[in-house]
Computed example of a mutant assay.
Amino acid sequence: MESPPDDSASARSVAAGFLAEHCPWADPAAVQLVVTELTANAQQHTAGWWRLRLRAEDDEFTVELDDSSTRLPEARVPDFGGRGGFGWPMVLRLAGRVEVRRHARGKTVRAVWSRPAIAADPAAAA
Rank of each mutant, 00 (worst) to 15 (best):
M1N: 11
E2C: 10
S3G: 14
P4Q: 14
P5T: 15
D6S: 11
A9S: 12
S10Y: 00
S10W: 03
A11Q: 00
A11W: 01
R12A: 14
S13A: 15
S13F: 07
S13W: 01
G17E: 07
C23G: 13
C23P: 02
P24I: 07
A26M: 02
D27F: 05
P28M: 13
A29L: 11
A29R: 05
A29G: 06
A29S: 13
A30C: 15
E37V: 03
E37L: 08
T39Y: 00
N41Y: 01
A42D: 00
A42L: 02
W49P: 05
W49I: 08
W50T: 04
R53H: 03
A56D: 00
D59P: 09
E64F: 05
D66T: 07
S68I: 04
R71L: 09
L72K: 09
P73Y: 05
P73D: 07
A75F: 05
F80M: 08
G81S: 09
G84I: 01
G84Q: 01
F86D: 03
W88N: 05
P89L: 02
R93E: 14
G96W: 00
G96P: 06
R101W: 08
R101V: 15
A104M: 10
G106M: 01
K107E: 02
R110P: 03
A111S: 14
A111N: 01
V112T: 15
V112G: 08
W113T: 06
R115G: 13
R115C: 14
R115V: 13
P116M: 09
A117N: 06
P122L: 04
A124K: 08
A125C: 11
A126Q: 14
